[in-house]
Write a protein that binds this DNA or RNA. Structure first.
Length: 373
DNA sequence: AAAATCATCAACCGCCAGATG
DNA sequence: CCATCTGGCGGTTGATGATTT
C-alpha cells in the first residue's frame, strides 16, 4: 500500500494551510457540502489532496468544533472511555461532541497520560503501576506518584476520580458507577454501539436519567445552551451536529462558550464564529500575516488575529461569517425545530457534512439519533 | 541574552476495510 | 474474484512558542 493516488499527483501542497486555502475549502464545503473528497481539491481550487482537505475540514474548519480547553468532565470522560476503548480515538470522540479524535489524541498524549502516571496509574491499562513501573516513572517524573496499594479495596481509578473531585466514578472491577452498569456492559455500550450515544454518554458520565439531561448538557456546554429542549432526545426530534446548539446558541461575546484560553488552539476557525471576542489588547493592527502559522506554538489563539484574518477572507457581501450562521442567542426556538443551519443566501443544512467524530459510529444503524436531521 | 529543552498540536503517513468497476 | 479507489483511523513527525538553563 502506498500513498493515495490523489497524493501521487505532483504539485500538491503540503504542510500548514494558508488562510486563503481555508477560505476556499470552507466556502466550497459550506456551499456544496461534502461529496467526494478526492474531487474537492479540484472543485475548490486547491492544490491539496482530498485527504488533506478532509482532515482540514474535520479537525479545523468544521463549524461545530468546540475547541478550547477540556473541561474536567470531558477529561474524566476521556479517561473513562479510554479505559474501555483504548486508543480508539474516533469512538472516544464520538462521545464528546465538538471534539475531534485528533484533538483528544493530542490531549491524551500531552496531558492525560502524564496525569495518570502521576496518579500512579498505567495509562494503558489504567491499573496501578507495578513497583518497577513506579520506579521507572520516578526517574522520569520529579513529582512522586501517588502510591496506591494493590490491596486497597477501592480501585486506583476510583481514587483518582475522587481525588479530582469528579462526580464520575471510574471503573473498579465490575461497576462503573452506582447505577451498576458493569464494565462489560459499558464496553458493550461503546464497542457495540447499542445505545443512544448521547443518552449513554450522559448516563455513563453522570449516572443520570434522561430527565436530568438538561442540566447535564447545560453543564457540559457551559454557557452554551441554556434551555436545550429535551425534545432533542425524543424519537422524532431532529439532530444535526450534536454540539451545534452550543455553537448556535452562543451568546454574542460569550467567550466562555468556547473557553478561549492560552491553551486554546491558535489556529481555530471556530474563533471566526464568535461575533465578539475578547478585547484584543488593542492590537488591532494585526493583519493576515498574523494568522497562526504554527501548531501549538501559536498558542493564545490570537483571537484578534483570527478575526482579522476572517476579515481578510473575501467573504462577499452578506456572506460574512456572522451572518453565515445563526448566532443570535434568541434562536433557541429555531434550534428546537430545525437542524443547525447555515444562513447564506438561503439555508444550507449540514446533512452531507461529516459530523462530530466522523467515525462510522455516528452514522451507523445503531445511532439513529445522529441520522435524523 | 542565547542556547537548550519542553510542550503542544496541526498535519502527514501508512495501513485497513468497504465500495466500485 | 480481482484490482483499484476512497474514506477513515491511529501513530508519528515536525514546526513553533514557552520555559528553563
Amino acid at each position: 500500500m502506498g500513498r493515495h493516488s490523489c497524493c501521487l499527483k505532483q504539485k500538491l501542497r503540503k504542510g500548514l494551510w494558508s488562510p486563503d486555502e481555508d477560505e476556499k475549502l470552507f466556502n466550497y464545503i459550506t456551499r456544496y457540502g461534502v461529496g467526494c473528497w478526492s474531487s474537492v481539491p479540484r472543485l475548490a481550487g486547491l492544490q491539496r489532496c482530498g485527504k488533506s482537505c478532509r482532515l482540514r475540514w474535520i479537525n479545523y474548519l468544521r463549524p461545530d468544533l468546540k475547541r478550547g480547553m477540556f473541561s474536567q468532565q470531558e477529561e474524566d470522560l476521556i479517561i473513562s472511555l479510554h479505559e474501555v476503548l483504548g486508543n480508539r480515538w474516533a469512538q472516544i470522540a464520538a462521545q464528546l461532541p465538538g471534539r475531534t479524535d485528533n484533538e483528544i489524541k493530542n490531549f491524551w498524549n500531552s496531558c492525560l497520560k502524564k496525569k495518570l502516571l502521576k496518579q500512579g496509574l498505567d495509562p494503558t491499562t489504567h491499573k496501578p503501576l507495578t513497583e518497577a513501573q513506579v520506579k521507572e516513572e520516578n526517574k522520569n517524573i520529579e513529582t512522586p506518584p501517588v502510591q496506591i496499594p494493590f490491596s486497597q479495596g477501592l480501585s486506583a481509578a476510583t481514587t483518582l476520580a475522587s481525588s479530582q473531585g469528579s462526580a464520575l466514578l471510574l471503573s473498579h472491577d465490575s461497576n462503573f458507577y452506582d447505577g451498576g452498569l458493569t464494565a462489560e456492559a459499558t464496553r458493550e455500550v461503546f464497542v457495540n454501539k447499542t445505545l443512544d450515544p448521547l443518552l449513554s454518554y450522559f448516563e455513563f458520565q453522570m449516572g443520570v436519567s434522561q430527565s436530568d439531561y438538561d442540566s447535564s448538557l447545560s453543564h457540559y456546554h457551559s454557557a452554551g445552551l441554556k434551555q436545550f429542549d429535551q425534545n432533542h432526545l425524543g424519537t422524532n426530534s431532529s439532530y444535526g451536529f450534536s454540539s451545534m446548539p452550543s455553537l448556535t446558541n452562543s451568546d454574542h461575546g460569550n467567550v466562555s462558550v468556547t473557553e478561549f484560553s492560552d491553551n486554546n488552539s491558535a489556529s481555530n476557525m471556530s474563533c471566526l464564529f464568535m461575533n465578539e471576542v475578547k478585547e484584543s489588547s488593542s492590537n488591532s493592527s494585526n493583519n493576515v500575516s498574523n494568522y497562526p502559522v504554527g501548531g501549538a506554538g501559536a498558542g493564545g489563539c490570537q483571537i484578534s488575529n483570527m478575526m482579522e484574518s476572517a476579515a481578510g477572507f473575501s467573504w462577499d457581501g452578506d456572506n460574512k461569517m456572522d451572518s453565515l450562521f445563526q448566532f443570535d442567542s434568541v434562536k433557541s426556538e429555531e434550534i428546537k425545530t430545525s437542524s443547525w443551519q447555515l444562513q447564506t443566501h438561503g439555508s444550507i443544512n449540514f446533512n452531507g457534512y461529516p459530523i462530530t467524530s466522523l467515525s462510522e459510529d455516528l452514522t451507523g444503524p445503531n445511532f439513529d439519533v445522529f441520522q435524523q436531521i
